[in-house]
Design a protein around this nucleic acid. Structure first.
Lengths: 90, 90
DNA sequence: CAACTATTTAGAAATATTTCTAAATAGCTG
DNA sequence: CAGCTATTTAGAAATATTTCTAAATAGTTG
């Protein structure tokens, strides 16, 4: 994981909304796409960015691909931010 | 503040390093710039992004401009992330 | 006020991002 | 296996980002 990649992934509103959708559990690419007015190809692009940033992982069942939040990376981000506001120590 | 703007600001390594420098207190634009192998104009550009994202604020003294971390926005970000990993509730 | 120092702004070039359409893959189902 | 459905990949266009150089601003100090 790289913080740059992860923060960049979070900088796009579509991707943040995808993550918010995934709060309530895993969802197939098509189901995610149905929430947006964009082509499936574009959604697939955004999912690939989220996947590269380790913010989601995928699993396959039948011919669906399901995406799920990876909360551990979210925690690493929070730790980085916490350290930032944290202290005066070097 | 917009989360998009703030996460985008954090996605650049130079800007994250500037913020890390500012952990130990406020610093003038020139002093910040001396830590990087880039022109002052480029540093000024990055500082303007951080300022628009409300991650830093500036104050003037003599003909220096000092930059300082704004930790409250960092906390808002952490709250957003915490909510993301938080729960199954809608 | 004239010259100096610190910083920003403007404009341009190189690169990266986001979106689309069209085509490819891949796995399921009759 | 043939066709269907779900999803991704490729390629291209529009837009945004990052960096530089050169010039402008602005405040300080002799």
């Amino acid at each position: 994981m790289s913080f740059g990649q992860t923060f960049k992934a979070l900088s796009d509103p579509v991707r943040r909304e995808i993550l918010t959708l995934l709060r309530s559990g895993r969802m197939s690419a098509g189901e995610i796409g149905s929430h947006f007015d964009m082509t499936g190809a574009t959604i697939s692009y955004h999912l690939s960015i989220l996947k590269k940033a380790d913010l989601v992982y995928e699993s396959r069942y039948k011919n669906y691909i399901y995406y799920e939040l990876n909360t551990s990376v979210v925690e690493e981000l929070m730790a980085w931010l916490s350290n930032l506001k944290g202290g005066t120590e070097s």
